[in-house]
Structure formats: structure tokens, C-alpha cells
């Protein structure tokens, strides 16, 4: 169930689009912000709220990489390994993170503190290499910088 505040936001959103289905992405974003991830139950709730079939919501959630159906670690580190980052040493950053956190790309640490993922170009190629944690971008990374960022995140 959405908070009062989010329900109000949904009503505001309705004014901005000609169809209810167009609210699927913005409302899923609200849901993910409130619940941390998008469970089957949440999808059913959103389907009811927007009067859109559950199957449609499921299709959308599985299509877009930023919607997460399962909770990941407290800090989700997304490292760009695309070409501009690769040229500026993203490989070194990946190795350093894997060693430091004791997990491989795509894994979550046992204490559920960290999740490491590889992502495609984040639009940060001029400040490569980079990773994002949530909405925050960390740029021009070096192993030393990574250490201090991890320290601050803990």
C-alpha cells in the first residue's frame, strides 16, 4: 500500500498523461522508492491502482533494467565497464572492488551490505572510470578513491 503522500502523487500524475497506462513507469518508480524493490504483491497493487492487467506490469518490470524484483544489498554498486570507462581503467576498479568486498560482479555480500553489478554506459564517459550507488555518481575513480568511498558508505 502506498503512503498518503504517494497516493497524492499518483493523483497529480494522472493530470499529466492522457491514459492511465502511461502512469506505469512513474508509479513503479514511486513503488520502488517506497518499498526498495518491486515484489509480485507490489505489481498486483500497481495493476489495481492503474487498472492495467498484472501481466502488463510484469512485462514492463522485467523489460527495464532499473526495476528490481528482489532486494539487493544495502549499497548497490553499479560499475560501468563500457568502452570509455574500459579505456580509462574500469577493469582495475572492478578487480579492486571484488577483492575488497570479497564478492564477484553480480553478487551480494553475505551480510547483505553490498551488491556489485556491471552496467552499461552511464553518461559519465568524460569522468571515467565511474560507478553509481543509487542515484549518486562517483567519478574519476582510482583504487584509493574507491577505498575512501567504501569507507564513507559503511
Amino acid at each position: 500500500m502506498f503512503t498518503e503522500e504517494n497516493l497524492k502523487k499518483v493523483e497529480e500524475l494522472r493530470k499529466r498523461y492522457p491514459t492511465s497506462q502511461a502512469l506505469v513507469l512513474p508509479v513503479l518508480w514511486l513503488a520502488q522508492e517506497q518499498f526498495g524493490h518491486i515484489s509480485e504483491e507490489t505489481m498486483k497493487y500497481v495493476a489495481g491502482l492503474l487498472n492495467v492487467p498484472f501481466g502488463h506490469i510484469l512485462g514492463v518490470v522485467s523489460f527495464y533494467t532499473m526495476f528490481h524484483r528482489e532486494a539487493c544489498g544495502k549499497h548497490h554498486i553499479e560499475v560501468c565497464t563500457n568502452v570509455s570507462c574500459m579505456l580509462r581503467g574500469s577493469g582495475r576498479i572492478v578487480n579492486h572492488l571484488e577483492k575488497k568486498l570479497g564478492i564477484k560482479m553480480g553478487e551480494t555480500s553475505r551480510d547483505k551490505q553490498w551488491t556489485l553489478s556491471e552496467v552499461e554506459c552511464m553518461g559519465s564517459c568524460g569522468t571515467a572510470p565511474m560507478f553509481a550507488v543509487g542515484e549518486e555518481y562517483y567519478e574519476n575513480l582510482t583504487p584509493e578513491k574507491v577505498d575512501s568511498i567504501l569507507g564513507d558508505l559503511k
Partner: peptide, 20 residues
């Protein structure tokens, strides 16, 4: 919500409509 293909103009329109 994370999909390069949504930059393609017709995919963008579908995405705006709340579809894949």
C-alpha cells in the same frame, strides 16, 4: 528506467505510453 533502446524514437513513444 534503464534501456538504451528507449532512445530510439518509436521505442521512446511506447515507453512513454507505459509499455515495454
Amino acid at each position: 528506467a534503464g534501456a538504451y533502446i528507449c532512445g530510439e524514437e518509436s521505442a521512446l513513444m511506447n515507453s512513454l505510453e507505459g509499455q515495454r
